[in-house]
Computed example of a mutant assay.
Amino acid sequence: MRNSFRVHAALFFVSVIYAANYSLSKDVMPRYMGPFGIVTLRIVGAVLFFTIIKYVVAPRDKIVGRADNVRSILCGICGIGVNQLLFFSGLNLTSPISASLLQTIAPIIVVIASAVLLSEKITLPRVLGIAVGAAGAASLILSRNAQAAIYPHATLGNIFILANATVFGLYLVLVQPLMRKYHAFTVLSRIFLVGAVIAVPFGWREALTADYASFPLYIWLEIGYMVVFLTILAYLLNNWALKYASPALLGVYIYLQPVLAVLIAVALGKDHFSWGKAGQAALIFLGVWLVSQKPKKAVVSEVAVKTVQS
């Protein structure tokens, strides 16, 4: 029970981090730095952090075997390099509302990929959970005013976000076996290194040519937030949770992001809360609960094992 609470707490905190990013990133780009420059700063910072920590905490832990090494490379490509390039490119072109809505496709990809790659059962409660959660998220986001006139290239941005959600959903499934077999810092240092090889060639110019002297304090703080919280802490908590949660549960927490984004906006005086939004939030939490339910056979098996062991 205690471990279950920690998993949900970690996933909830990650959702808060991601929800705040939709607004903070728009402050930085494209006025102060392009999207690829932000990605470069994030990934380089994460590579340095996770590599140093890895050699302090788990110096002898190494990813071995061809299958695991190939999997780690795929995780770096899907979960770090391509994922972040697509996300920030899309967010730069579209509105935070559209980006949040399109992120809800990730749990669908996660469930399908889990069934194919991990032989995880797609139970009726999970199907219902995804449907209910998606309905709540879509209702919440679509109830807000569109800003199409402000984003003339929103269609292209939406395509990028859609692709981002797809590759991130695949990453959640691919990385799970690695996180259960190796130390978290071993996996994260490897996949961020692979991601750097993919992303840095696209963003090093934007990172080097930015006029850092003109950055106000709040921009520095927001960039620091994106490197420390959005990249390092969020990935660390996400991957730790993968040891104990199914990919479907991890993915469905994306539904919380639009709800939390509204709450953050209310706290800042940029939005108002209504009973309608409360109902939409309830749908999303119901979806999270349904997806977290384990198949009955799995529960029976666990009980049987505990009985034999005792």
Rank of each mutant, 00 (worst) to 15 (best):
N238I: 10
L237K: 00
L237S: 01
D27T: 14
V175D: 10
A281L: 09
A10N: 05
A131V: 12
Y182A: 12
M179W: 00
W204D: 08
V288F: 06
E206F: 02
T51P: 01
L11I: 12
V305L: 15
Y22I: 10
Q280R: 11
L24E: 06
G90A: 06
A199C: 08
K297E: 15
G276C: 12
V44W: 02
R190D: 08
V127Y: 11
I198M: 08
A20M: 14
W240R: 04
R180F: 02
L208Y: 14
A241Q: 06
T104D: 01
V110L: 09
L117N: 02
Q309W: 04
D68N: 07
L250V: 11
S95V: 07
S25C: 15
A106Q: 12
S89M: 13
M33C: 05
R31K: 11
K297V: 14
A278E: 10
L11T: 05
L93H: 05
K270C: 07
T40A: 14
C78L: 14
R190E: 04
A134W: 01
V303T: 06
R42L: 05
R126Q: 02
Y253D: 08
A19D: 06
A137P: 14
P30K: 10
I108R: 12
A67H: 08
I223W: 05
K306V: 02
V262N: 00
I109W: 15
S95D: 12
S100D: 03
Y151F: 08
A131Q: 01
W275C: 10
V82A: 11
R2D: 03
L140F: 05
G169F: 10
G279T: 12
S301K: 13
S25G: 10
L188D: 03
G45S: 14
F12P: 00
L48R: 03
T123I: 05
T155R: 15
I191W: 01
I130R: 11
V167E: 05
G37R: 03
C75D: 00
R60D: 11
A58P: 03
F12C: 08
T209Y: 15
A148P: 08
K62A: 09
A281P: 08
E302Y: 04
A137C: 15
M179L: 04
K121Q: 13
I43C: 10
I150W: 11
K297Q: 15
V288N: 05
A115H: 02
G129T: 03
S114N: 04
M226L: 13
Y22V: 08
W220K: 13
T166R: 01
I232C: 11
G136P: 14
S189E: 06
S98L: 04
L174T: 10
I80L: 00
L237D: 02
A245R: 00
K62W: 09
W275N: 09
F185Y: 12
A213Y: 03
P295V: 01
Y32D: 04
L236R: 03
R6A: 13
F13R: 00
I150K: 13
K296F: 12
